[in-house]
């Protein structure tokens, strides 16, 4: 099936890189992929988002208007994109920063305290990877190994030491989904 995902949050929360890792991993697994960022004034302090498509079919438009999943890192993202999710689609909310619940009752919703878990891991910047771990566990779009391989590619040798904490963050996100079973 085609996975059409919107990843959204504040600038600096790593939503663009989360999307790129996912896209890269999809490419490594031989899927057809695209990544499209929002660009413009909204990126400076406001909401940044990107659309990722991973599919066995042809990628036409890279714009996602009907999402199979939305990963919302903050409240404005939830408000903006919750309505774009297809019925029976998936919504993952960063409950560390979002107090509200979803208004949709026809979708699958997971609340992940991503920033708290990242803090526990000693690196607040891996909150995005906690969300990604949860998303992968739920959807199995690509394997966590492909994500780590992509991460190594993106980080390069000088930042190899950051790989373990990212790996751990992916696992913690996945664990939360497993526990909710």
């Amino acid at each position: 099936m085609a996975h059409e995902v919107i990843i959204s949050g504040f600038g600096g929360q790593g939503v663009m890189s989360l999307g790129q890792l996912l896209t890269y991993a999809g490419m490594l697994e031989g899927k057809n992929v695209s990544w499209l960022p929002s660009y413009g004034p909204e990126m400076r302090g406001g909401t940044a988002n990107c659309s990722v498509i991973i599919t066995d079919e042809l990628v036409g438009s890279p714009i996602v208007t009907e999402a199979t999943a939305v990963i919302a890192m903050n409240l404005p993202s939830l408000e903006k994109f919750e309505k774009t999710i297809l019925a029976e689609g998936l919504l993952i909310i960063n409950s560390s920063l979002v107090d509200s619940k979803t208004t949709r009752d026809d979708i699958d919703v997971i609340y992940i305290p991503a920033n708290e878990i990242a803090d526990e891991l000693g690196n607040n910047r891996v909150a995005n990877m906690v969300m990604l771990g949860a998303y992968l566990e739920k959807t199995r779009v690509v394997s966590p190994d492909s994500i780590i391989e992509s991460l190594r590619e993106v980080l390069g040798h000088s930042k190899e030491h950051l790989v373990p904490v990212n790996q751990e963050a992916l696992k913690r996100g996945a664990q939360l989904v497993k526990n909710k079973g």
Binding site: T23, V59, P62
Partner: peptide, 10 residues
């Protein structure tokens, strides 16, 4: 156009 310039693909 802006979309082709900004998007990523293999």
């Amino acid at each position: 156009d802006g979309m082709l310039g900004q998007m990523m693909e293999p």
